[in-house]
Design a protein around this nucleic acid. Structure first.
Lengths: 218, 218
DNA sequence: AAATGCATGTAATTGGTTACATGATTTC
DNA sequence: GAAATCATGTAACCAATTACATGCATTT
């Protein structure tokens, strides 16, 4: 359902082609959604049939002709209605965390490799977003005005930046945690892969940012 | 693809029924995945046909009979292979952030309502996870040993707790941000919904945690 | 010569959600 | 008396991914 409103939302700001829409999803909107051209084009046709958007052909030279879409009044109404609806309960899907959850099946070496690999991927994402923040700020300065549009998109960008930064920090801390236990980890077969808590309590409390036993209860 | 490995992963620890698996997805694993019984049962049949899992019937009194599944050697191999594969590039889907991105179409009052509503949902999730952390800790203490299993699941739990806490903080800060501009927001029609940057630079820098212009460039 | 960008699509398949169907037992 | 728990499934539908298909212009 969200793709529909993502597209209507974009078309409520600018006229765009399917190709343009895809580029937005690949840049700024990658913070919260992703999609494929093969999903966008049929969806555009569907929305046009429902009279939520309309299109006109733009003939071009040297480039293929294109279909410019714009939102209709019915489309604007549909979008507003969605924006006013209570937000859906978040249903997370994070395949890396699922992998991590079962990584006790791997050697410490392999776990560290996976964590470092993933950290790099997140760092690449963060760099891309920082670039976007810089461009966003140039835009605000250039226009010398702050619109509600720029305010909300900045807030979303902030969330994206934060999320990446914190995931990276978690990777770093978890790498340290696994390294701390590396010697015990791989002697799994010898001692059943276990360590008594007295040995590890402090490390664990630090990792979890826990001060005392009592603070856990609420 | 992840559901398959989530199920294989679970069955690599314990024998379980489809119903048991669903309960895991609804509790701890809700940090990173969600699914439905109507997806689990066909998937179990598929995995059994592929000889990755096998089942035996348990006849019960007072309760319906059940099918207990366990992983096969082929299943364990398949799981290990997946765990060793380089993690997929994260493809986020966050319908609330999409909504937020287009909320300049709403009144400040409505935006605040949505942010507060969502904050509460995240707070509820956080409470549930804190409860899980407490239970997890009791488990470690009871057994008086830390297994690699408990180490990795704790790390994932930590990521879940963090993520919720930080989303809540973002909601709070964004509520303050919108409140700061509430008077300008709703006079949209009068002054085109704009404010010059000189008026807002400090507020923005604080929100973004930016010290100076230069630090933006990298 | 090969890859990328521009531009639009279809087809096949897999993944995910909602609704439907059953039925005993236990808890509120 | 109603709702929740235990337990397993099917059917219909919608969403998403991957592969296929075309073709010119520009960049590497």
């Amino acid at each position: 359902m969200s793709l529909k409103f993502g597209m209507l939302g974009l078309l409520s700001k600018w006229e765009a082609t399917g190709y343009d829409i895809k580029k937005e999803f690949d840049s700024f909107m990658s913070i919260f959604w992703h999609t494929h051209l093969s999903q966008i084009y049929p969806e555009l046709n569907k929305l046009e049939k429902e009279n939520l958007i309309e299109s006109r052909m733009i003939l071009q030279e040297g480039k293929p002709d294109k279909k410019l879409y714009s939102i209709t009044d019915a489309g604007k109404k549909e979008l507003s209605h969605w924006l006013e609806k209570p937000p859906e309960t978040p249903n997370v899907k994070d395949s890396f965390l699922m992998q991590a959850f079962f990584m006790d099946n791997l050697s410490a070496k392999d776990v560290l490799f996976q964590l470092k690999h993933y950290q790099k991927q997140r760092e690449a994402r963060l760099e891309k977003l920082k670039q976007t923040l810089y461009e966003q700020w140039q835009q605000i300065k250039e226009k010398n005005k702050l619109t509600t549009r720029l305010l909300m998109s900045s807030a979303v960008l902030k969330r994206g930046l934060e999320q990446e930064a914190e995931y990276i920090e978690w990777c770093k801390r978890t790498i340290v945690l696994v390294e701390t236990f590396e010697h015990v980890w791989d002697s799994k077969l010898d001692n059943d892969g276990t360590t008594t808590i007295d040995e590890v309590k402090d490390i664990f409390y630090e990792y979890f940012d826990i001060e005392d036993e009592e603070s856990l209860k609420n």
